[in-house]
Design a protein around this nucleic acid. Structure first.
Lengths: 341, 341
DNA sequence: TTGAAAGCGCTAACAG
DNA sequence: CTGTTAGCGCTTTCAA
């Protein structure tokens, strides 16, 4: 609370205070059409002293334009998504568009609800993580008639268009890199994946590429919830007790890989001589660790940037041709934990 | 893109498809007022098959109610804020209200812009980080006539009400705890603080409490940007080269403290015997480190929860009495790096 | 360069 | 229980 006047200011108030028609006030406030310098100043003055804040609800209804872009992601706690957001915001800041975030917690039904909620504000575009959605979600997106960019993943069929990396390929490439260094007895650790399709696809690609060389994962371990660092530690300990012969540990994300690194160092294990490790994501956060953990860049910021550019371009020119799948190329960073000397 | 029909569906379409008046359709879709079971079913059926998504823009304009809560925070990359968000979302999910996030990047002018932008959607309430705002921002918030909760900090005068902790007191308490363990030659590391008022207040409280015991910080170091872990490491190294006699390092956040820990361990320094360390925030993330770093809980989730509850309560009952300042109590966690045995 | 009229799609308020 | 009427605050369109 604050002001005693319960009624927010309207264009009419500014109109009356400045002695200029509502229409002209509207023009001034939106920088549209020609308005004489004098009138312009008078309006601006009045708006400022009154403290007028335009009502976008009314504006949007009248103009049938809403400069919002719905961005729907699984979580904000996973460092990946704030970085994607940063990419998106960076681009949209130079346009009229504004991102609005919705979080799904990796739950398809929640995604559906959030989507419904956001679409009911009639945004100019949608950026949504992943290619897997409920039927209803897909139907809504199709019916919305606005540009839809599915991000992060390109292994599948986009509703409209997609910007991301192939996680299957990422898994395969990591597998090849590991084998190439001569590692053979490989363990895998990751999240419980029923709903994290990208982690699942990486895993599939990984095992597939191993299989091609006649190698099978020796053992695996999954977690959910808790501190990723601590979980990485625990799982690593458990796994090594069970399978002391392991010579490589592949982690589905960098945080658990960091935990694993801690555990291995504690145990005095030679990295990468006795055991090599690798994670996924390329999070900058890990830079200060005792070893630079091998990882693979997920192109997070770039995905955000590209997705936002696509939306902005389509809003500008709805009839432009569209590229259905934009696949970026993640790079392996070998760090100090994958290269056997 | 998707559908060929450029015109989104309206209530009228559902009305026609179901043979029920727009008004009744509206009632069904909002679960308001009594509608016979039969009509209800017919409407729902029609809405579903058509794939109707209500237009909240129009709804909000007509009803003069917007179930949005603007949440304005400095950054999403600082783990603290996603956790606050989680607290907020948790509470708002049980209400009609929905959080909408705006990010300021710690810049007052950007905060002003974001605020203006968000207020123009006429939200039902505002949750904004910090007590320091531009004059214009304060004026806007006061004039908005909606509940405003300033979060994270209670050292100052809230516009409407505040939920947070006293960072000054937090700094003081950490100083006392450190002195009590017999540490005397203390170094400080943190972000460059011109715009991070909470870090600044902690620092002030810290030095103040030291001063009261006749102790002064031996040396200090500030950083900005980059990987916090790596920066913590670097600064620690630099600082120890400069002042080898230090016996305690106080870091303004847990990530740089973790980096410092890495460096100290690397150097084979006895923690907490030779040098003790402490950070701030209580981020769960650190659980798997080789030592549990001493820290102080910033009550992040709780702040989010409480702030959302306040907004929800005020939206329910605008005339309820308000508690201006809700100060939570952070607890020191000693971990393994502050207790001298 | 300015103004007047007519809605945007929905809901409050009131009748029936 | 259902329908009718009259806007919400702004912008589009057209006229002056």
């Amino acid at each position: 609370m604050a002001s005693d006047d319960p009624r927010p200011l309207t264009l009419r108030d500014v109109s009356e205070a400045s002695g200029v028609s509502e229409m002209t006030v509207s023009r001034v406030l939106r920088n549209r059409g020609d308005v004489s310098h004098a009138t312009r100043e008078r309006v601006l003055e009045a708006a400022k002293t009154l403290g007028y804040v335009p009502n976008k609800i009314a504006g949007a209804l009248a103009s049938q334009r809403v400069n919002l872009v719905a961005v729907i992601i699984p979580s904000l706690r996973n460092m990946v998504f704030p970085e994607v957001m940063a990419g998106i915001s960076g681009v949209l800041e130079d346009t009229e568009l504004q991102p609005v975030v919705g979080v799904t917690d990796y739950m398809p039904e929640k995604e559906e609800r959030v989507l419904y909620e956001m679409l009911s504000w009639r945004p100019s575009g949608v950026i949504v993580a992943g290619l897997e959605h409920t039927e209803a979600s897909i139907a809504m997106l199709k019916a919305s008639g606005i540009p839809v960019v599915e991000i992060m993943d390109t292994d599948g069929k986009p509703i409209d268009c997609a910007v991301g990396i192939s996680h299957r390929r990422a898994g395969r490439e990591m597998a090849r890199a590991i084998l190439k260094q001569g590692y053979q007895r490989i363990g895998f650790m990751g999240t419980k994946m029923p709903l994290d399709h990208r982690a699942r696809k990486r895993f599939e690609g990984f095992t597939e590429a191993l299989a091609k060389e006649g190698v099978e994962i020796v053992t695996q371990e999954f977690y959910s919830g808790g501190s990723a660092l601590a979980k990485g530690r625990e799982m690593t300990r458990t796994m090594l007790e069970r399978e002391p012969e392991l010579d490589f540990l592949y982690y589905s994300n960098d945080m658990i890989a960091a935990g694993g690194l801690m555990e291995l160092l504690d145990q005095g294990i030679d990295i990468p001589g006795q055991i090599g490790i690798a994670g996924f994501n390329g999070v900058e956060l890990l830079d200060g660790l005792p070893r630079q953990v091998a990882t693979m860049d997920a192109c997070r910021t770039e995905i955000g940037t590209k997705a936002a550019q696509v939306i902005a371009a389509r809003v500008e020119n709805p009839d432009a041709e569209i590229e259905r799948i934009m696949e970026l190329t993640p790079r392996i960073s070998y760090g100090d934990t994958l290269k056997r000397r």
